[in-house]
């Protein structure tokens, strides 16, 4: 009767391989939590006013250099 232990391990491993990572994990049947308190902060994690006029970052400085060097060649 020592035999059945082995296939169980391979079965588990196979299941993991085929696991759909986007599948929502089951909550325990009696799992409860306070969803009123924590949730509010989730709304404050985003910004829609990021599109500023700042062109002093590295990327913009390199872009400027590139455009100016090309302009002088023309």
């Amino acid at each position: 009767m020592a035999e059945p232990a082995k296939p169980e391990v391979t079965e588990e491993a196979k299941m993991d391989l085929l696991e759909d990572d986007d599948e929502f994990e089951e909550f325990e049947i009696d799992q409860e939590w306070d969803d009123k308190e924590e949730g509010k902060e989730a709304l404050q994690q985003w910004e829609d006013d990021w599109d500023d006029d700042d062109v002093n970052d590295d990327f913009s400085l390199q872009l400027r250099e590139e455009l100016e060097s090309n302009a002088s060649k023309n």
Binding site: D22, E25, F27, Q31, D35, G39
Partner: peptide, 14 residues
């Protein structure tokens, strides 16, 4: 996201 169990990290990630 707002109502998910804050302990359930894998679901928040999804």
């Amino acid at each position: 996201l707002m109502h998910c169990n804050p302990q359930s990290e894998s679901n928040l990630r999804r």
